[in-house]
Design a protein around this nucleic acid. Structure first.
Lengths: 224, 224
DNA sequence: TTTGGCTGTTTTGTATTCATAATTCACTTT
DNA sequence: AAAGTGAATTATGAATACAAAACAGCCAAA
């Protein structure tokens, strides 16, 4: 969305706050401590407040007039809604990718897949997810739709704090790997409809695991 | 995205700038004149700059460090990409709406449809589009997915400046009306899959008309 | 005539200050 | 002990000031 913001203080501050939220240093539902963050970052309140506007647009925080900003809770409902939307977006990315992808890009995705599989075999979950994400990024890039990529990325920021590793089952992991192999097949066949369906289904599986992880607030608690 | 911002200066400023862009008072590709807008709105630069961050997140303006903000051009490519994504989102809204919609909501959509048809018969295009939009909003609301609604709305802001009326054909209009009647049927039948398809196809038709309207920049011109 | 350098002006990004709203604390009343 | 009130403190939103970057204009040199 925002182009070329990396060398502005507000952009830097937004990124750092986003990281702090994702790493659990700023907990869901809690107030953003403007003064403390300014001291911590060594900047004035102006760029920090601008950063909060950016983060609010991303759905990372909510702005409450005269009461400051609060970290958005990740409720089960919001998670389901977000995954549903992302499913539609990723489905579209799969369809478009099969239309536009090059042989080189397919080969690169295959290479990433083999690297990911190596980590799967070694049960190293953190790098597994890293390569998993890179594969999805590559498919999204192959869609040749920048609006799609940015929209998806914006939603992805919100769920970055979900810790799948705490609720991974062997069954899910096996299914995820099978999904990925089917994705490769679809890319090779340029079967966009099937890839779209697999990506949507893949995200549904992921939602089940995400919903079982520890950062999800009960809906009743969230409305209090 | 941003909750409860209607009574803040930055929120008000963002809305007014958005309107000015959509009404052609701030033209695509042009610099946002901060100083002049501050004088015009009677506010200081702080909330105005905050407003620009919000608008950048929406894709209405682009922020160029040390060079200020510029109204986003609406290129053919961006339009196609945006419609493609919105098609996926509206398709999903149709599927979800058929799952959740109440009889009262269907009746309300039918009433809106009749009102819209009256304007169609009288060839009053402006109110036709107003009711058209209300029908789509009602379907989106019936999806019961707030993330979907907000994501779609954010994208919709970007294309608000498209003036369909300048390139409307009788053929398109007839097709659009037929699409709408089919939508009602699907809602009555709760046929989500078919509604999703109609909504996607409906947007494809709309893209053809949008692409023929006068605010679209040639891609080559946009990169200069 | 064109190009490059310099200077002055304007714009941009950020820091600081000011005014207002909200919260907290202490004291009094019930 | 609980509730209410008022004052003090803190936080928030916006205005203003400051420093740096960018731009425009002018003049001299090639």
């Amino acid at each position: 969305m925002i182009k070329i913001q990396q060398n502005t203080l507000y952009g830097e501050a937004a990124a750092r706050i986003r990281d702090m939220i994702n790493e659990g240093l700023l907990l869901p539902g809690t107030r953003i401590p403007e003064k403390r963050l300014c001291e911590q970052f060594g900047i004035s309140r102006t760029p920090l407040r601008e950063a909060l506007k950016v983060l609010a647009s991303e759905g990372m925080v909510e702005l409450l007039p005269n009461r400051g900003a609060r970290v958005m809770r990740l409720t089960r409902q919001m998670l389901e809604e977000t995954y549903s939307v992302m499913g539609a977006l990723e489905g579209l990315s799969g369809e478009l990718a099969c239309r536009h992808i090059t042989e080189e890009e397919i080969a690169d995705i295959q290479a990433l897949h083999y690297q990911m599989m190596a980590y799967y075999k070694r049960k190293e979950i953190r790098p597994y997810f890293e390569f998993n994400q890179r594969i999805h990024d590559a498919i999204m890039l192959a869609s040749r739709n920048e609006v799609l990529r940015e929209t998806h990325s914006s939603l992805n920021h919100r769920i970055q704090r979900v810790r799948y590793s705490t609720s991974m089952t062997d069954e899910y992991w096996k299914q995820a790997v099978a999904d990925h192999e089917a994705m490769i097949d679809c890319l090779l066949d340029r079967d966009g409809e099937r890839l779209g369906n697999i990506l949507r289904e893949h995200l549904r599986h992921k939602l089940v695991v995400a919903a079982a992880s520890g950062v999800i607030d009960d809906d009743l608690a969230a409305s209090s």
